[in-house]
C-alpha cells in the first residue's frame, strides 16, 4: 500500500479544509481500503470522517433524509424505509454481505468503484484508472460489462444496487466543500464515461457527500428491487430492476423504473415509465411497455444476452409487484 498521512477531523469544516487533490475521505473503508491494497487508489492523505455528525434517518414534508455516514444495515432495517420505500431497503439487503453492510456508509456506497476486473488489476491498461492507457474490457472478458451509456474508452458497469433504487425515486444528493453547499439530482450526479471515464461524477476535489434526500412519494410504498446474479447471494448484479407503481385498481397511473448491471451509471428508464402509465397491469402489457427498454444498447462479444435479460428482469419485477398481496 502506498504511504499516506492520516487524520480524524471532528467537524465538517475541519474535514473540508484538510481535503483536496490527493486526499481521500474514509468512511466504511470497504472500497477504499480494498483499492488501496491493490494500488488502484493511492491517496497521499486519508481523512477518517467517521466522527463527523453526518448520521440520522428522518422523514419530514420534503421526504426521507439519510446521513452520508449512516450504515447500509441501519438504513435497510429502519422502519420508515422498510414501510415507505421498500425498494431502498430491499436494494440494500441484497447488497454485499452482513459484515460489509455493517461497515459501508450510504455516501461511500454511492461512490463505490466498478468491479471491472481490469480496473482492479494495475498490470492491465484501463482508461478509468490510468487515463489514456486503453480499455482492456472492449475485447476482453466483458460478460459482466455495461451495454448502456458505454463509450469506446470504457464499458465498466456501475456496481451499486442502492443507487439504482435512489435514481428511480429522483433522489437528491447533498454536497459540501469549502466553496459552500449544493444539492444535485443523483441521476445527474453520475456521468457517463465518454472520453473521460476517470471522471465518474460531478464531485469536485475535496467535495464531500453529506447526505441524501428521497422526495416524498407516498406510492413508493408499492415498490420492489429485483436482483439477478450468478449465485443466489453475496454477488454483484448481472441485472437488476427498481420499480415503483402508483395503481388505481389494476390500472397503472404512474411508474418509476431504473435498472442496474446494465449501465455505466444507474440507468433510469423514463421511456418505460411513460409506456407503463395508463396501462392495465398484466404480463402482456408489461412486455409491450419494456419493448424498447434496451434501445441504444451496445453489446460486446460476451454480453449479448443483456438486452433480453434487461427486458425479462423488468417484466418479472413488474409482475411480482402487481401480483403480491398487499
Amino acid at each position: 500500500m502506498h504511504p499516506y498521512t492520516f487524520s480524524q477531523p471532528r467537524s465538517v469544516r475541519d474535514a473540508l479544509s484538510t481535503a483536496g487533490p490527493g486526499a481521500a475521505f474514509l468512511a466504511g473503508g470497504t472500497t477504499l481500503v480494498d483499492l488501496m491494497k491493490l494500488d488502484v487508489m493511492t491517496p497521499g492523505h486519508v481523512l477518517d470522517i467517521n466522527r463527523l455528525p453526518l448520521r440520522g434517518i428522518r422523514r419530514d414534508r420534503d421526504g426521507l433524509h439519510i446521513g452520508a455516514l449512516d450504515r447500509m444495515s441501519d438504513v435497510a432495517a429502519h422502519r420508515t424505509v422498510r414501510e415507505s420505500y421498500p425498494v431502498i431497503s430491499q436494494a440494500l439487503e441484497l447488497s454485499a454481505s452482513g459484515q460489509l453492510r455493517n461497515m459501508a456508509s450510504i455516501g461511500g456506497n454511492l461512490l463505490q468503484r466498478t468491479r471491472c476486473g481490469y480496473f482492479r488489476d494495475v498490470t492491465t491498461p484501463c482508461n478509468k484508472r490510468t487515463p489514456g492507457s486503453g480499455c482492456s474490457a472492449l475485447n476482453g472478458v466483458n460478460r459482466n460489462h455495461a451495454i448502456l451509456g458505454t463509450s469506446d474508452a470504457c464499458i465498466a458497469t456501475h456496481p451499486s444496487d442502492l443507487a439504482v433504487a435512489l435514481v428511480a425515486l429522483s433522489t437528491e444528493v447533498h454536497l459540501a466543500s469549502t466553496q459552500g453547499v449544493r444539492t444535485v439530482l443523483l441521476d445527474r450526479f453520475y456521468e457517463v464515461p465518454g472520453n473521460t471515464p476517470h471522471l465518474e461524477n460531478v464531485l469536485r476535489p475535496g467535495e464531500l457527500i453529506t447526505g441524501i434526500t428521497v422526495p416524498h412519494l407516498p406510492w413508493a410504498a408499492k415498490s420492489l428491487y429485483l436482483k439477478i446474479r450468478d449465485r443466489q447471494s453475496y454477488e454483484f448484479a448481472l441485472s437488476s430492476a427498481a420499480v415503483a407503481l402508483e395503481m388505481s385498481g389494476r390500472t397503472i397511473k404512474q411508474a418509476r423504473v431504473a435498472v442496474g448491471g446494465m449501465g455505466t451509471k444507474p440507468w433510469r428508464l423514463t421511456n418505460v415509465e411513460k409506456a407503463l402509465a395508463g396501462r392495465r397491469a398484466g404480463e402482456a402489457a408489461f412486455e409491450a411497455a419494456v419493448e424498447n427498454a434496451a434501445d441504444g444498447a451496445r453489446t460486446r462479444a460476451l454480453n449479448g444476452f443483456k438486452p433480453a435479460l434487461l427486458r425479462r428482469t423488468l417484466v418479472r419485477a413488474l409482475t411480482a409487484l402487481t401480483t403480491e398481496s398487499r
Partner: peptide, 15 residues
C-alpha cells in the same frame, strides 16, 4: 458489537 471484516478495517479507525 457488530460483525465486520477486520481485513478492510484500518486499525487507526478503531481508537
Amino acid at each position: 458489537g457488530e460483525r465486520v471484516l477486520s481485513c478492510l478495517t484500518l486499525a487507526a479507525t478503531t481508537d
